[in-house]
Amino acid sequence: MSDSMPNRPAVDAMITECRLDGPFWGALKRELLLSYRRKSDLVNPLIFFLMVATLFPLGVSPDPTFLADVAPGVVWVAALLATLLSMDSLFRSDFEDGTLEQILLSPQPLYLVVLAKVLAHWMLTGLPLTILAPLLGVMLFLPGDGMWGLVLSLLLGTPTLSLVGAIGAALTVGLRKGGVLISLLVLPLYIPVLIFGSAAVQGAVTGLPLGGYLAILGAMLSLGLVLAPLAIGAALRISVSG
């Protein structure tokens, strides 16, 4: 199983495994396993996240009070860019080796498979970013009260980023130079998440109630969970058939 061409019994075993667990868990397991085998790709978005946050004190001003003011926005923008950067590879390797065609042809519901892929993507980028965020908060002198707001808003916001970004990735997977185009397509749709996410952190810093902002982030997430997989599925079918 370690080389790139798995032998026949291994393939059979994988098929049985998927059948036993159903399409969602099968796809999720496959994604996580594939990512585990390329560990360096997992760390790259996190390093990028750290580096972008380092640029601001060096580029703008190292003054603690100034940094504390901009910290919510900087952490959120850095998380958003790190997610965006990892988006291009979501369907790319599956498209290039033909797996994507097999997924589309398979009798499994595309909705669930797509949802599993996005969930795996979030578990490997959004979740680590969320866990790492308090460290960046400390680096940028974010007041202690804001930490919970930061973690909670990222926890609710980053899955939405993954879902919306996957639509862009699905639309551009057939193109050779998809990278920059994804940002053009997806960034306008990321703006609302950014606004409410960083507003939640600001609110937490100033001691305002967070409920409203988190509710809106949760509403965007539920809307995304229901509708985005449909758009991703449609976009994948178009990209593969075109």
Binding site: L171, G174, A231, A234, A235, S239, G242
Partner: peptide, 12 residues
């Protein structure tokens, strides 16, 4: 394909 893809994007 261009028409279909942009239609999906416009709807989103």
């Amino acid at each position: 394909t261009a028409a279909q893809s942009t239609a999906v994007l416009a709807l989103v």
